[in-house]
């Protein structure tokens, strides 16, 4: 899921200072799991804004904020509240925020959250990054552990000289990705695979902005 954290409130207030009336949009997927776009988070934001002398005209937690069309349809019932707002505050990830940018061509849209990374919830509201969305997955060669994400240098051919007692030079709180890969390859009796050199990565596979038309691609693959 996309991991988000709430922006510093002073920074948010600085962004929205010229507006008075807001419609709030959350998301029932990742942002709810992160506690940054849940119904409770929206209630709390409403209270905060009221305390700052602002008005909240309405709020919605759409099913999937980044599903632009679906969110647009869900918002229909809130048309009046949306029309009454000077601006939209979105409490989801950057993608959900930009759904609102598309849905509201004539209204300013502000993010209430910072989008951090694509990761897993390892314990309740504890998140660890797992994937860098690089465009061409390498973990089939690295024991199912992504070195591009788990190593701060994204090294593809083994640990650097900064590894210390199995941890990273950047922080002792980061286990060295390549020691983890080594341990797992050993466990899988697959050490020989670690001796294969992984070639320089083709970063063009992850060129921005990404775009995929899955239906068309499926037809082409079949053809």
């Amino acid at each position: 899921m996309i991991i988000t954290k709430q922006k510093d409130r002073d920074k948010l207030m600085e962004c929205i200072k010229k507006h008075d009336k807001f419609f709030l949009i959350g998301c029932s997927e990742c942002a709810t799991l992160c506690g940054t776009g849940s119904p409770e988070a929206l209630d709390e934001m409403e209270e905060f804004l009221k305390g700052q002398g602002k008005t909240v005209t309405g709020k919605l937690v759409p099913k999937t904020g980044c599903q632009t069309l679906g969110t647009k349809i869900e918002l229909k019932k809130d048309k009046e509240a949306c029309d009454a707002a000077d601006a939209i505050i979105v409490m989801s990830c950057g993608a959900g925020t930009q759904s609102a940018t598309e849905i509201f061509p004539d209204k300013p849209v502000y993010p209430a959250n910072d989008s951090l990374f694509l990761g897993n919830m390892t314990r309740f509201q504890m998140f660890d990054e797992r994937c860098s969305l690089c465009g061409e997955c390498v973990i089939g060669m690295t024991a199912g552990i992504c070195p591009i994400t788990n190593c701060p240098k994204g090294l593809l051919n083994g640990p650097c000289g900064g590894m210390s007692d199995g941890n990273c030079e950047v922080s002792p709180d980061i286990p060295c990705a390549w020691v983890r890969i080594y341990e797992r390859q050993k466990r899988l009796d697959n050490i020989e695979e670690m001796k294969e050199t992984i070639e320089a990565k083709d970063w063009s596979k992850g060129q921005k902005p990404g775009r995929l038309y899955a239906k068309k691609q499926k037809e082409e693959t079949k053809g």
Partner: peptide
């Protein structure tokens, strides 16, 4: 190239040396 003979664990370092 460089190598760290006293890395702990040393095995991944030796594999990289070979590479």
């Amino acid at each position: 190239a460089v190598v760290t003979p006293e890395a702990n664990p040393v095995e991944p370092q030796l594999i990289k040396f070979e590479k």
